[in-house]
């Protein structure tokens, strides 16, 4: 992981949190992680929380409200608003596990992070390590989450993780993940079928 170029890329700092989720703030100019990607937050004492970007929220401010109806806004003004804006882009993060003393667990972190803790994007190595640990139990957090587009969040995550696993030589991981999703949702036909249809697109994209 130390050689992974994407490890420890800070993408923002924590705004607020609870035991199940948190919200981080970042500038639009920062290369913030895409929807569904895995992030980690160092909680101290050798504990890190893992979560998935479950929502990206861009709030307006007073200046934007004025500018939005102005005709012919110059590119300089747009860039200035984006780089120097006062209201940050909010990344909602759904916790899906944690690492404690080097051991990855697919349970919620023991405590939420504190405000202004650094939120970092996970590199492929970290993604592989987290998604290979255990038996994919963390998928339940996605499937059980309320008020989230579970199918799309899952699809986005499995695309990232499936690609990472494939590139690291495990082409069966994606099938195992699907199997797990079916196990979790098979008693709910109405929910499962749209999820699988979304995952069918991912499979095509992964080419496996």
């Amino acid at each position: 992981m130390a050689n992974d170029p994407q490890v420890n890329v800070q993408v923002g700092r924590l705004l607020r949190a609870n035991t199940r989720a948190c919200v981080a703030g970042c500038l639009p100019s920062q290369n913030f992680p895409p929807f569904g990607s895995l992030v980690s937050i160092d909680l101290g004492q050798e504990i890190s929380a893992y979560g998935l970007v479950s929502d990206i929220h861009i709030d307006d401010d007073g200046l934007v409200r004025q500018l939005v109806t102005t005709p012919n806004i110059s590119e300089t003004v747009i860039q200035d608003n984006r780089v120097n804006r006062n209201v940050p882009v909010e990344l909602s993060v759904l916790f899906v596990g944690h690492r404690s003393a080097g051991v990855i667990s697919h349970r919620l972190p023991p405590r939420p992070p504190l405000s202004l803790d650094r939120v970092r994007a996970c590199g492929e190595g970290d993604v592989c390590a987290f998604t290979s640990a255990g038996s994919l139990g963390y998928l339940r957090f996605i499937l059980e989450a309320q008020d989230l587009p579970a199918a799309d969040l899952l699809a986005a995550h499995l695309l990232q993780a499936g690609r990472a696993q494939r590139d690291h030589g495990d082409e069966q991981w994606f099938a195992r993940a699907i199997d797990k999703v079916i196990t979790q949702l098979r008693d709910d036909y109405v929910r499962l079928m749209p999820v699988l249809e979304a995952l069918a697109d991912v499979q095509r994209e992964l080419g496996i």
Binding site: A175, I178, D179, I182, T183, R186, D187, Y189, L192, M193, L196, E197, L199, A200, Q203, R204
Partner: peptide, 27 residues
Amino acid sequence: SIDPRYALEPSRARLPEELAGLLDRQT
């Protein structure tokens, strides 16, 4: 089947072969 709807609608009509196979095996 664990739900009659899985039996009534062939999964291959909605899903790629591999996914349909995984679904059928469990349902």
